[in-house]
Design a protein around this nucleic acid. Structure first.
Lengths: 235, 235
DNA sequence: CAAGCCGTGTCACACCCTTGTCACATACCG
DNA sequence: CGGTATGTGACAAGGGTGTGACACGGCTTG
């Protein structure tokens, strides 16, 4: 029913141009996604018959039935209604954008696009679509956090972090790639209504970094000057 | 908060002359827009207190506070800042046009105008407005800005820009194809009430350009002599 | 009960980035 | 060619952040 690989999300790409197809597949693979491919609407239907991807990358112009037609059809079917769709198009006219969104696309990318933008938009849509992690197990670059057993480990090696640092790391790993101000962190990591100096966040960031330093994972916690902190597996 | 009718966009018309008012309302209704009406600035405020139209049609000359005054006030308020404005005016002088655009109007129609022209301009402005990004990811010519993760990258390569430069670029990328004077940029990019020399904008423009130069994206920030600066993906 | 340990929040200090401004060079326009 | 607008390098002041130290309270332990 779903893609086998439980760790990475699965993306179905429907695109007829081979050049773009290989480029996108490479970008997706490198970002840790499993990829399925189809060259036209009929191929997409065949894939969807026995697999259920987490997201659909859909070219605007396809041989035979157009992408927009396929999107409209998927919207009608209960089975595929919840499938997030990102449209790819060569045109930059806003008319197409509007029509694409009307059909039910969740986002829209204009060619040519960079792999980085593609990944960013996919992550944004997936974040919106799926709620938080079910298992409570997060991992990034060999750093693993298990909310159930309240453990943190780096490369199979158990780490020792304090309670506040654990909550902080937990929050970060469940909300990566996003900057949070000191005020926001106090709201979401500290107990509700705690009256605490904002700079206290700095100190706990430092304690968390110190705990992650031996394994080199301290670089995952990044300072964004004037804005706050961010957890990012990416450089 | 928004107009109830989900299918058609909602337009607020602020106009004191009854003849024009009925003509415009008819044209809007026939084109499928929901319309709200007000006869002066005070009436517009009352409407805006509990409704949020998608676009504002604003007469230049109004009893009491003039239309331009109202527009300037709306620009200052965070709640109404992003509201697209089309100015209606009887005069055709260039000066007025410039002043209107300075105040933040998105377009400008000279009376007398045909319903067809009115609808066309409204659609154009709405298209531009809805092109605004849902997730805070902007891209142009391979340059990408992600507001959530607070990152800028050019062709896969992360860029290092300072806080003010980031805000500046963010503003530009979310309001492309439009000239902003130094004064306007100070209002909208700098913290409110900052007392800063206008030429300071030049310096930050330069710093932003310098950061974008390695990837060649500095040409996106264009100088409009005597008017200000503009972000434009093409030429 | 006393001593010691741990976690936490705050402070003070140092450092470096950021920032606004100036002065001068350069480009544009009539 | 003069005057105005803009580009650019440098600089001092200010502010944001990293970091070590410390006090306080709770808890365990002897």
């Amino acid at each position: 029913m779903c893609c086998e690989d439980m760790t990475g999300k699965c993306i179905l790409l429907v695109e007829d141009e081979p050049a773009i197809r290989t480029m996108v597949v490479m970008a997706l693979t490198r970002a840790g996604f499993e990829t399925l491919e189809a060259g036209d609407a009929a191929g997409a239907d065949r894939v969807l018959a026995d697999r259920r991807p987490d997201l659909l990358l859909l070219d605007w112009m396809l041989p035979g039935a157009s992408g927009i037609e396929l999107a409209r059809r998927l919207q009608k079917d209960d089975y595929t209604r919840d499938l997030p769709i990102i449209m790819l198009t060569a045109r930059s006219e806003e008319d197409d954008r509007v029509r694409g969104l009307e059909v039910g696309a969740d986002d829209y990318i204009t060619k040519p696009f960079s792999p980085r933008e593609l990944i960013a938009r996919i992550n944004a849509v997936l974040r919106r679509a799926s709620a938080d992690n079910l298992e409570g197990i997060f991992s990034a670059e060999g750093l693993m956090l298990d909310a159930q057993s309240h453990r943190v480990s780096a490369n199979e090696q158990s780490l020792d972090v304090g309670p506040t640092e654990f909550r902080l790391l937990h929050f970060f790993m469940s909300h990566p790639e996003r900057v949070y101000s000191r005020s926001q962190l106090l709201d979401r990591v500290w107990s509700r209504g705690a009256v605490v100096e904002e700079r206290t966040v700095d100190v706990h960031i430092r304690r968390l970094r110190k705990a992650l330093t031996p394994s080199g994972h301290d670089s995952l916690i990044q300072t964004v000057r004037g804005a706050g902190y961010r957890f990012s597996p990416d450089g």
